[in-house]
Write a protein that binds this DNA or RNA. Structure first.
Length: 593
DNA sequence: GCCGTTTTCGGCCCGACTGTTTTCAGTCG
């Protein structure tokens, strides 16, 4: 059985959770979580690394001990330590810590005193008002827990939103807050700013002399369903859509530090602060400080009081913050602690691709199949975006639901496109193309006799999506053997929140693409964004250029290019790494095999 | 459990808010 990175990460995370419930050394717990993240973020396969005899302890946060444990997981699919932990503890308690306001300590306490081991038992105990009898719990906590249990039932567990879904709520809310009295700077931070493909909640940052009015404006916003907390510097609400929003208010002099802090990622912040500590600095959301005294005099201290005894050396802008730790500015999309700190230190951060760099769209559909508009309407829209070309890539016949094109209908479309191109007179070019289905055996759904008439062929897997690894990979490789094949569309087929990626060896496929002069796209559809950031980065490191395409079915969705570009930026791609930043003449040369 | 331009031992990022206390632990981000 092949062990995937996410299997390894899951085991390490479970160990961390159980150790935490056992009240183990928190730093030890953190080590397991860090290692889990390192493995999950790996572009290559940890199992392959073990097989090749590579030393896993070279990876950040993985030492001799964890390297050995990961080897054990890869070789046996399990870990003795976890089995032992499961025997020793009550592994069911893990799910209880997902309830908000319940962490390891309180879960353990409820288990000891009330014998609560499951969500059902938790709910019963809360309904019977038994929780409030436990020290540290009160009526308020009890009703909060009940409410959280209700919400989880309603929407079936924790929910993450697509980036575009958050955008739809974020922008009007920002507009609402901007009109508030005394509001200076205002921005969305968090994973929304880092352009993660899905976002859990929304973090908003504002500067204001007096936070009172803007906090009031925030919690009384019409979309707010419930106020979770409300303070002078931070308030949290849940919108009717179920999105949690946090608003933080800081002074102008702290804006950059706070923006850096709340943009994250957490791992990036930790890495940044670690450098600061080594330089005798302290970074928090109020600024960068040079300490005037040694270690804190024990206990928790209020940040404000302590900071007044330290000298602020930066805070107004993010650039200042980075400068203090000796780094150039790092774009939000790169802040995942996936090597950006080292790259910044060594002056080899990529200059990230921008939307303006894109000269055309290489996948879109028309009325001929499942698109909603004519070729001409799509062409008009593409020209308005400033593009120089677009490829019409309707489905092939296998996709019966979309009334995919057979040879005859594709031939007719080719003729139609040639006619429109003539009328357009050379300023804008419509490329003759097709999204050909890659059949189960790796052959293409249309014969070479028609494919050779096209400017480019993109191929994709839509059926028999759950073939086992080797077969699925061979299938795609075989499709790439066809001399007319150029671009593998939505390579892994994943749909965020609903469909897992196909079982594919992407590293092998990318190597093959490099050999054969083929490419793997970043599909900009909000729920696909496929390739993901990690694999886009892998392509870049291999020297494989990546096209970004929208897969648009309407003129409006041509605008999803910005999402594809964001994903490319998260994958460290610069302009020269992106295929469709090239003018058609140069692009055509690269597509020729 | 990891890690090393104050290091191989002794640190490990930092603060706000809530609900419970009566000075703070726990949780969260």
């Amino acid at each position: 059985m092949a062990v995937h990175n996410r299997d390894v990460a899951e085991i390490l995370n479970e160990i961390a959770d159980l150790l935490e419930i056992e009240d183990a050394n928190p730093f030890r717990v953190r080590s397991y979580r860090n290692a889990a993240r390192t493995i999950a973020d790996l572009s290559g396969n940890a199992a392959d690394m073990v097989e090749r005899g590579e030393d896993l302890s070279d990876l950040p946060g993985i030492g001799k001990d964890l390297a050995g444990k990961i080897q054990e997981i890869v070789r046996t699919g399990a870990l003795g330590q976890l089995e032992e932990l499961r025997r020793r503890t009550t592994p069911q308690l893990r799910e209880l810590t997902q309830i908000s306001s319940l962490g390891p300590k309180r879960v353990q306490k409820l288990h000891e005193e009330l014998g609560v081991e499951s969500l059902e038992e938790l709910e019963r105990a809360a309904r019977e008002q038994k929780l409030r009898g436990v020290a540290g719990f009160g009526a308020k906590t009890e009703s909060n827990i009940l409410r959280d249990l209700e919400r989880r039932k309603e929407r079936g567990g924790e929910r993450r939103f697509l980036w575009v879904e958050i955008e739809e709520y974020a922008e009007p809310l920002l507009e609402h807050l901007r009109k508030g009295k005394g509001v200076g700077r205002l921005a969305a931070a968090g994973s929304y700013r880092r352009r993660k493909e899905t976002v859990g909640d929304l973090d908003i940052l504002a500067t204001c002399e007096d936070s009172g009015p803007v906090m009031e404006r925030f919690v009384s916003y019409e979309e707010v369903e419930r106020v979770l907390s409300r303070g002078k510097t931070r308030s949290s609400v849940v919108l009717r859509s179920g999105i949690q929003v946090d608003l933080r208010v800081v002074g102008e002099e702290s804006y950059g530090a706070a923006l850096h802090y709340f943009t994250g990622s957490k791992a990036h912040n930790v890495a940044t602060r670690r450098i600061a500590v080594a330089k005798g600095l302290k970074i928090n959301e109020y600024g960068v400080f040079r300490g005037t005294h040694g270690k804190d005099a024990g206990g928790k201290s209020s940040g404000g009081k302590e900071d007044s005894e330290r000298r602020r050396v930066a805070g107004k802008t993010e650039e200042e913050v980075y400068e203090q730790v000796g780094l150039p500015y790092i774009e939000p999309e790169l802040r995942e602690d996936r090597g950006e700190i080292e790259a910044a230190r060594e002056g080899r951060l990529p200059e990230l691709v921008q939307l303006d760099d894109v000269r055309g769209d290489l996948q879109l559909h028309t009325k001929a199949t499942d698109g909603k508009m004519t070729i001409r309407e799509m062409a008009d829209a593409a020209q308005k975006l400033g593009y120089e070309y677009m490829a019409v890539t309707d489905h092939s016949k296998r996709v019966t639901m979309a009334q995919g094109l057979d040879e005859r209908r594709l031939a007719e479309q080719i003729e139609e496109i040639e006619g429109i191109n003539e009328e357009l007179g050379g300023g804008f070019r419509i490329l003759k193309s097709c999204e050909v289905d890659i059949l189960k055996d790796g052959s293409l759904d249309l014969p070479d006799s028609i494919l050779k008439e096209l400017d480019l062929v993109i191929g994709s897997v839509h059926y028999n999506t759950n073939l086992a690894g080797e077969k699925q990979t061979e299938r795609v490789l075989r499709a790439m053997d066809n001399p007319y094949f150029s671009i593998l569309a939505h390579p892994t087929g994943r749909i965020l929140g609903s469909r897992e990626p196909y079982d594919l060896d992407l590293e092998r496929i990318m190597k093959a693409a490099l050999d054969r002069g083929c490419y793997l796209e970043i599909n900009a559809d909000p729920a696909r964004l496929d390739l993901d950031d990690v694999h886009a980065k892998m392509a870049r490191e291999m020297g494989l250029k990546v096209p970004i395409s929208t897969d648009a079915h309407t003129a409006t969705s041509l605008g999803h290019m910005r999402l594809g570009v964001a994903q490319a930026r998260r994958g460290w791609l610069s302009k020269r790494d992106v295929l469709n930043t090239l003018p058609w003449k140069e692009l055509a040369k690269l597509l020729r095999r």
